[in-house]
Design a protein around this nucleic acid. Sequence first.
DNA 1: CGAAGTCTTGAATTCTATCAATAGGGGTGG
DNA 2: CCACCCCTATTGATAGAATTCAAGACTTCG
Lengths: 209, 209
Amino acid sequence: MSALHARLVVSTGAARHMARNETIFDQDDRSDRFFKLIAGTVRLCRHLPSGRRQIVEFAMPGDLIGLVDNPYQTLAAEAVTPATVIGFSRDGLEHSASGEPALRSDICVLYLEKLRDTQRHVCLLGHSSAKQRLAAFLLRMADRLVPRPDGSFELPMPRLDVADHLGLTIETVSRAVGALKKDGLVCSTAAQRFILCDTAALRALVSEA
Amino acid sequence: MSALHARLVVSTGAARHMARNETIFDQDDRSDRFFKLIAGTVRLCRHLPSGRRQIVEFAMPGDLIGLVDNPYQTLAAEAVTPATVIGFSRDGLEHSASGEPALRSDICVLYLEKLRDTQRHVCLLGHSSAKQRLAAFLLRMADRLVPRPDGSFELPMPRLDVADHLGLTIETVSRAVGALKKDGLVCSTAAQRFILCDTAALRALVSEA
DNA sequence: CGAAGTCTTGAATTCTATCAATAGGGGTGG
DNA sequence: CCACCCCTATTGATAGAATTCAAGACTTCG
């Protein structure tokens, strides 16, 4: 376990249970607290003046959310499913980090990983078709989610969240799902349950971007 | 001056002059070195298997480029204009940072700023029209570039680079420029020279995203 | 069983990409 | 100094992809 997570384990933090669609923190909240996600899925998104919403990333159990340097959060965090988080004080972490360089180093690595992920997402949104975006998303989700014995996995988020993450509309996402099914690349018994039938072809499709 | 830049000043680093379109480092190069950009503009981009290119960001004088934790670079750096860079060894910086916590802290802040910028770019690419993307880009460039006495500024990059940054084609960028000119939001005497006539309206246009 | 929310499907519109051709601009050499 | 050439930018016509608007189907839950 990294120095960062070891430190969080011994820190005081109260567990909070969040209902579906409940806001953990808003994009204008003071960033004096951050959270570790214990269970459930959380969307990190930006609400645009037009009422539109861009989901920058989804957080899954084990992820830290809301840990930034600015005085205010830049993204809002909302529970996609019922979720459990543990809150920590940023001052507390800062204090620990000033005496424990390995901690700061871990935080650095964390930021860098997020930066890489976000850069990849820029590339995805820059030039790719709806089918390619969905294929990339499903491949990534298959990696992050624990599969069932039959190899299927259950997306925690509804179509609207997928759409707002991929920069598409729900209708387009729905049609893209249909297209991938028709092509035999994925199977889907329920709206949020998928089996990737041909991961090689899915990867090839993504590479064409 | 931050501890980071102070450290770089006293470090040994050889200045390199790069010609237009010359590669400073490639996306598969070992990341044992990083660079400080002294003069010129550099594009940080990813070359996709399809031959397409996504420019994630532009670097300007003072920016550090290629400083990552992975063993390999994730983005390529290419000179948009003739450019001057100073190279540094990552090991050297790591060594300094292990004895000087403020250094590590500065690097952390740097990553976080880049992360915020990249997140903003995700929002821009997620939902906005060509006109909105261009308006946001021009506003940002007006902030980063030094204006001439008459208030105009010169874009260092050609249309193709703008297009690959905004996820558009050169034709669409060209038409978007024409549209903003027709609307009276910008003036343009030469292809790369602009005056923002109505920044309020430009900002409003961006906010509509 | 009914109702609300989510998802899918259809048709028309809008926006961007693509293909193709023309125009402008900067530099070189005559 | 001018003509030419190369590179970049603009403009036009068409096709394609995604959005939008609208309606219908499926789930889930009370």
